[in-house]
Amino acid sequence: MAKSWCIFFIFWPTLALAVCWMAPAWGWWFPGDAASTLGARIDDLFYLILIIVSVVFVGTHVGLAYVLWRGSSFNEPKALFTHGSHNLEVIWTIVPSGILLFIALYQMDVWADYRVQSAFPPEAVRAPVAEVTARQFEWRIRYPAPGKTLQLTPQPDDLYTVNDLHIPVGRPVMIQLRSDDVQHSFFVPMLRVKQDAVPGLVIPIWFDSVRSDTYELLCAELCGWGHYKMKARVVAQSDANFKSYLAELHREQFDDGVPSAATESSEAAETASKSE
């Protein structure tokens, strides 16, 4: 009976390892390779920790299984009389602390690049692409008018969309994240980006997309009964497509079909060319 319990305690960790080994093949893994440069670095860190953790998991469980197995077939009248070992304590304090410190220090760079504002890519900071405002239960996006830069306060010629964020591909972009009501969290799994939107704060975040694609944007902080349905998308597209997208938005939101003095010359020209 004792032996079968040993096997029981060997079976479960083995099953866990097997499932993890098969998980990527069965689709129980990341939704896809990270589509951002920082995301790729985050994935690398994840795999590094995964390797270290797996070694420790196997090591401790082999140890546990070994001592249990030995204990189950112990035939002498008395167990080993020992109160511990100073040397072992020193070893198993120093070695893990070294490994843990290494993991912690090794992570610093990525975190600094992601969040410390002085490390943000200058080109992204110069021209934030949009302001994203979360509210129950949608994402409101405010772009500056073509050719202008985003101001912290809304401008009369700003462009608005809901649940549809477009960004240029292949270069770092920055957004200003706000919340109108409660806390939300801006989560794009494929880009490995997550940042809470905190009422009363404007939080700049930057990311990039290495390929033209459409990603899911969702809320990762409980924000009420409709938390699960704050579904939106992030569209990464080429500079040219992004520009024409903004121009199209501008046309939709400002062009009433009558050329006016306020209309910018470039746009007047566009409208003219279209009507020809």
Binding site: L64, L68, K78, W111
Partner: peptide, 28 residues
């Protein structure tokens, strides 16, 4: 907070090793 959190894993690890050490050589 990352450093302090990593460090809290250390006493936890020490405890695990000592528990395994306790079973080792025991009449289970």
């Amino acid at each position: 907070f990352m450093i302090s959190t990593m460090m809290i894993a250390l006493p936890s690890a020490v405890k695990v090793f000592n528990w395994i050490g306790t079973i080792w050589g025991g009449k289970v």
